[in-house]
Every structure is written in structure tokens, then in C-alpha cells.
Design a protein around this nucleic acid. Sequence first.
DNA 1: GCACTAAAATGATGTATATCAAATTAGTGA
DNA 2: TCACTAATTTGATATACATCATTTTAGTGC
Lengths: 248, 248
Amino acid sequence: MGKRKTTPLKDHAPDGHHCTLELKTTKLGMVSFFRDLKQDELDQIVKRFSANHYQAGDEIYYQGEPARYLRVVVEGAVKLLEYTEEGKDVVLDILNPGSYFGSLKLLGSDVYTESAVAQSGSCILSIGLKDFREILQGFPSVGIAILDTSAEKLRSSQEHIKQLTTEPVETRIANILLTLSEKFGENKEEGTLIQLPFSRKDLADMAGTTTESASRVMSNFQKEGIIDTGRQWVEVEDIEQLKAIIQK
Amino acid sequence: MGKRKTTPLKDHAPDGHHCTLELKTTKLGMVSFFRDLKQDELDQIVKRFSANHYQAGDEIYYQGEPARYLRVVVEGAVKLLEYTEEGKDVVLDILNPGSYFGSLKLLGSDVYTESAVAQSGSCILSIGLKDFREILQGFPSVGIAILDTSAEKLRSSQEHIKQLTTEPVETRIANILLTLSEKFGENKEEGTLIQLPFSRKDLADMAGTTTESASRVMSNFQKEGIIDTGRQWVEVEDIEQLKAIIQK
DNA sequence: GCACTAAAATGATGTATATCAAATTAGTGA
DNA sequence: TCACTAATTTGATATACATCATTTTAGTGC
């Protein structure tokens, strides 16, 4: 259990100077649905995207706004969430580089149904839906690949539903920690540091519980040596025990 | 409040004689993602589908089976659900005619992650994924339309998550009744009969609660004159009051 | 190293809903 | 019309978790 003086998290790209065309080209090829394209095809597509940098906490879009872009995380992390009338936030997902978000409603016009916030300093690519439709028309294989990822998104959303209805808070949180360490994990001597700033409130909003309950669960995990944690950071020390909690 | 001697539900197609090629052709055009095709294009596509009839309660596929088909409900209703280890059933959706289900994972092989059960006598079309991939390659507009519906599915799944984490059982059930009456409602003198057999347990599995809690909520709704209900059937008498519960 | 502050932890209490148990009844089929 | 049975209802009790209130502390910036 470390008594540290500073966050173990790295100060993630506070400026956006690197969020450039070169990065676009190198990173866009990593996105699953462009993976099978040839280099010259990819180049054509890259041109249609524009890159933007967001600071941690910046709103990328807000629920209710007209949905005009499809976006891809190239660096950093993006939180998708719904703000409810009563002031509760429901976090739907936290996206890592390579994930797409925004709108896929290519027919007719639509509105974003969730909000997107940069969870850490992030470089995001966007493409207008009209441009994207043209890409799909030109490269049917891209459409098939996206269909695949979007089926995967539906799947994970359904898993979320299942957890909310069948698992207690402790298990749900264990699951979240496991997923986050897969998405954002960085190997350290003592364990896996989740390279993503997130508070107890964020965790609670992901698990569908309260800050206090999340805090209690995390305290227990730390007492049992499963994690080491501080403000906005978590390091998983004993993945096996975490998995055991999920199974039982 | 009716004291009836028999179910008001119609005995939905216990035989499958009508579940034929003609039905395929007429109904497939109604499916949103084939809607924009010309008649001769549609005819080509129809040939690749085969039709099957299922009795209420029949398993169409089971979670864990290799996922080889994409299916479309042409008549009846299909329940998508996950059976958990501890014996709890989580109902993800109840599909009405025109909805697709099954696999969209066209790349590589996969396994069904949920189970599908005919909720009433149903006529279902299926197409092998290889055939379907060919259709997509031939008609990119179909791909775009499916992307659209699958975005819609994700949306409704996220709405489900939001409800589970922010709304009490009563509100969740009110919402389900409203949705079902939109999907399966049949106008009667007294109100809207939900033309779909579903038990308190089904309702509970949809709302993520227990049979007993679902029953208590339904009893109250009936006392307040919002619904009339019996075994496996519900008629909504006062939609406005239902909506009021959802809002408040 | 020290003071500062928002994040996190902890404690006491309340409540919605689950659980367990039993009684009632709707709708069937003879 | 009647007996039958699974679906539904109802009641009593338990419990996980929320809520409210307060204290503690990690990590920053000076």
C-alpha cells in the first residue's frame, strides 16, 4: 500500500500540439473498421476526418444537440453519459483509443441521445455524416466492419443490463475495475495501474450506485489487498481475487 | 373491470401453414432495411430467406450456440433473454413483426450471447450470414439502413440501463406497459389490449424485479383503473395516467 | 514542510424492494 | 357447471443499499 506524494497517473497531453494529421494517419489505421483497407484507400479516408484536442472535462457534445458527426478516439479517454432530470448521471461507457462514438444514424436527421465528455486530455477525430455515408457507399467492407463493432457495443450494453439486474454493487464494481484495467491498464511492479483519472462518483455512475457505496466497496477492496487507490486513481494488485468476486 | 371467462388474447397461429413464401415476400418489404429496394431487388433477396414457424414457448436459439443466422420476425413475437447461472432470467427485449434478431457478427465466427424464444406462435425468416454478407456487398444501402436500426437498438438498450439505475420499479413497469402497448396494442372499446401473452414473471424479468413486486405494482394499477388485467394479458385503460407515472 | 481543499471515508438511519410463506382466483377442459 | 391447477395475489419479514451528516485525508501549490 503506497503512501505516495503525487498521482501515479501521467499528465495526459494537456496541450494538443501532437493531435495532428500524422497522428490521424497512423492511428486511424488502428481503428478496427478501417483495418482491412489498403494504404491508398486509407489515405483517401483520412483526408475527410478532422482532428480536435479536448482537455479533461471538456464537453465534446451534449445530449439533445443535432447529431452531425461520427467520432473516433485517437488518444485519451471519452466518457459517454446521460444526465437525468433529477441530476443523476448515468455513465454508459468509457471509451479508449480506437473506439468510435457519436452518431450512426445516417438516414434522416437525429439528435445525440447521450453526452460525451473528455475524461482525460484527448485527441478526437470527427467526420460529417454525409462524408461518412459516401465512404460506406464506396467501401462496403467498412460498413460490414462497423456493423460488427456496433453489434459488439450492443452486446456489452446488454451485459451491462444483466449486471444491473442480477449482480450486487460489489460485483458490479469489481467488473468495472476489471474492464477498465483491460482498457487502460499499465503494468507496474506492484500490479496494473489504470491509466485513467476517475473519481468515486465516476465509478458510482458507472455501477449505478452512490458515491458512498462505491467508496465503501473500494475501501474493502483495499483492506483485502485487491487494489491500491487514491484520489482519482486505482491500481489493481490482485486480479485473481477480483475475478473471484465476479464469479462467486 | 371485466369478469371474463376466457382470455381476450387471440389464439395466435397455432399451426404454421400460412408461414409461407407469399408471406415472406409481402412482409419482408415491411422490414425497415429493405424498404428502399425495388421490387425485383427485393425478390432476389427474398429467395435467400427461409421461413419457419414456432409455437409459443419454442426456443429459436440458445445462448452459446454458434451464431449462424440473421432472423426477422414476420408474425408473432420473440423474446430475447439471458438465463443467468443463478436461475434468474433477464429479458432484453420483446420483438414485434419487422424486427431483426440473431447475429450481425459477419466477420469471423461467433456465438449467440442471448437466447430467443417465441413468445407467441410466430413466423420467422432466417438467412445464413454468408448469404447476408453477399446482400450487403451487393446493396450498400441495406447496410446503411441496418446500421441505422442497430444504432436504434443500442439507443433503446441504453435507455433500459438508464431506467434500471434511476427509476423505481413502478415507473419501469409503467414504461414497459407503454412500450408493449405501442408494439402490440390493439384498440378496444375500453382501451388498448396488448395482443401478447405475458405473465407477471415475464414482466418482472423485463423490469429487473421479482414476480411478487411486479404483481403488487399491477394490482395497484388495476385498483387505480389504469389497467385491466388477467392471466397473461393486460389491457391499458388509461394511457394518460400511465404516462403521468412515467413523468413524475 | 505546511496549509489548504475537494475527494474520499465513515457512521447512523431510513426505505424500496427482495425473500419467504401462504391464500386466492382466473381460466381451462371435461 | 364444476373441479382443477398454475398464475397471481397478499402478508410478514429481512436486507442491501440509499440517504443524510460528519470527519478524515490525499495530493496540490506555495
